[in-house]
Simulated scan of single mutants.
Amino acid sequence: MKSFKHFSFLILLLIFQTTTSQSVEMYGKVESSVSVENIHVINKTAQAFATTNKKGEFKITVKLNDTLIFSSIQHIPKKIIVGEKLVLNQAVTIKLEEQINELDEVLVGKILTGDLLSDVENADDDAPINFYDVGISGYTGKIATQSERRLHEAGEFKPKMLLGLLGGGLPLDPILNGISGRTKQLKERVRLEANDELLQKIKTSLSKDFFSVYELDESLRVDFFYFCQEDENFTNTCTNKSDIEIVEFLKEKLVAYKNNLKTTND
């Protein structure tokens, strides 16, 4: 009987050791008083990356003693070590605290002294009336850049404009700008500015977390991002894409970038 119990204990111990030594897919949920969507979940040990959905749910591959980091702009970063209980349960709930950025006290507007005549003289003028004040609709979308406005003013020639010949109203600017190459130059300028804006957005939102998992000397990081930007698929691959998709693109480019460095150094 004792031999049977001893044997059973060894079997259970073997199963436990096998389970905790292998990688498992862990399901988790992040809880917070603010938005829990698009929080970065980083397995620094295994170099795995995931993000939460609108409900704060995520899944990521882990094994015993892996280090998980939870990071977002709205939250205080949190780090946990994957223990035996997490591996066996394959589930975890994480509570994050809101990141409150306190600003130094600033003085806005004039100081009121209590002296009516003095305060009236020092008071700011009324704010200018805008379209909201008079109850009319106005444009509230993205404000066009200078290059976008110039491109709009330059116009673009379209075959249907030739119909204007019949009525004597053929627009000349689009034709002249097309012939001179100005329209093409403005289009390229708009494209480059959009690329720069996209690159800056990626650097701001992903740089810290990406390099916490995939190592690269800090002095090379700016050059690496320009290397990514030069890829002909950069805009299509990264525009309106999830952080996971962009990270996959950056991972591929990082391998190519390091290979280029190695070739250059050799």
Rank of each mutant, 00 (worst) to 15 (best):
Q47W: 13
Q99C: 10
Y27W: 02
K85Y: 03
A46S: 07
L86W: 06
S35M: 07
K55C: 02
S32Y: 04
I100A: 14
H75V: 03
K63M: 01
L86P: 01
V41M: 08
G83M: 04
Q74G: 07
E102S: 12
V36I: 08
S21V: 07
T93F: 08
T51V: 10
I42H: 12
S21G: 13
I80H: 02
I60Q: 02
G83C: 06
S71Y: 13
Y27L: 03
I94Q: 03
K63F: 00
I69H: 14
V30L: 00
T52H: 09
G28W: 00
P77G: 09
Y27F: 07
V36C: 02
E25K: 09
I42T: 13
I60F: 04
V92N: 09
H40I: 13
T52G: 09
K95E: 05
G28T: 01
S33T: 12
F49D: 12
I80F: 04
L68M: 07
I94D: 03
K55P: 02
K54M: 08
K63R: 04
V87E: 05
Y27G: 00
S33R: 10
Q22M: 12
T51P: 06
Q90W: 09
H75K: 07
T67V: 01
K78T: 05
Q22Y: 11
N65F: 06
L64G: 02
V41S: 08
Q74K: 11
Q99K: 14
V87P: 01
